[in-house]
Simulated scan of single mutants.
Amino acid sequence: MTEETSGTETATENLREETAEAAPEVAEHDRTAELENQLAEAKQQVLYAQADIQNMRRRAEKEASDARAYAATSFARDVLSVADNLERALAAIPAELREDEKFKGLVVGLEATGRELAAVFGRNGITKLSAMGEKLDPNKHQAMMEMPSDQEAGTIVQEMQSGYMIKDRLLRPALVAVAKKPD
């Protein structure tokens, strides 16, 4: 039995030595796999961070662009009332006063002021909407009333106040009357 015991002990001892030699290799392999996973995770986080930064940069550029393009919106709305009053003043001048030599200079000056105001609007991306004869578009027109007309229902038949756009945004809707079928 001593030989058997001695053989079992030797086998056990050999197994311990093999396990001890393999354990560092397994531990080293596990550690390498763990580090590779951490590296992949860190790379993924860097990619996400770069994407976030790029999105923030795009958003900031768009906000800055919009701020430049539409900064004058409030001022433009205020100036529209001046343009409306100038148009009403010119429309109120009777034809005989337009031809009178005493008033002709005044009328020409008012008309020149109106043209200059329109040019300033144009340089700043402010355009007048045309509404007469068009179908009612709730994105551009505000219907104030319906009028009996021989035109198709929903067609604009009267413009009470002009509408304006600033670049691609509505600055002020046109106040209009739309056609309805006569009773």
Rank of each mutant, 00 (worst) to 15 (best):
N139D: 15
D66G: 10
R88D: 07
E111P: 01
H29Y: 05
L136R: 07
N55V: 11
N37P: 04
V82P: 01
F103C: 00
E99A: 10
E63T: 12
N37S: 15
L80W: 02
D78E: 11
L47D: 14
K102P: 00
R68K: 12
G125Q: 09
E87S: 04
R98H: 03
N37K: 15
P138C: 01
Q50A: 05
A42E: 10
E87L: 05
K135H: 09
L117W: 04
A95D: 11
S74W: 12
R98F: 01
M56H: 08
A112I: 05
F75I: 15
E116R: 13
G109N: 10
G125Y: 02
D78I: 05
F75V: 15
K43S: 06
F75Q: 12
L106M: 11
E96A: 02
L106A: 08
E99G: 03
S74P: 02
A91N: 11
D137S: 00
G105S: 08
D52Q: 07
A60E: 14
R88T: 12
A60D: 11
G122F: 02
Q44F: 06
I126E: 01
G109R: 03
S81F: 11
S81L: 12
R98W: 00
T127M: 08
N85C: 05
A112V: 07
S74D: 15
A64H: 13
E61W: 05
I93H: 02
V79P: 01
A91H: 08
Q38V: 09
L90K: 00
G109P: 01
G125A: 11
N37C: 13
N55I: 13
V82I: 10
P138F: 02
E87Y: 00
N124I: 01
R68D: 13
K135Y: 06
K135A: 15
A67R: 12
Q142H: 13
N139P: 01
L97D: 08
L106Y: 06
P94G: 01
A64D: 15
V79Y: 09
V107G: 00
K43W: 02
K140E: 10
M132F: 04
V46M: 08
R59V: 09
E101C: 06
S65Y: 14
L110T: 00
G114H: 11
M56V: 14
R77M: 15
A83W: 03
N37F: 09
L39D: 14
E34A: 14
A64I: 12
L47G: 05
A118V: 07
Y70A: 12
K62T: 15
A71I: 02
F103S: 04
A40P: 03
A89P: 00
L136M: 09
K135N: 12
F103Y: 03
A51W: 09
L117T: 06
R68W: 08
F103N: 02
E61G: 06
R123T: 11
N37G: 14
Q142E: 14
L110I: 01
A83D: 12
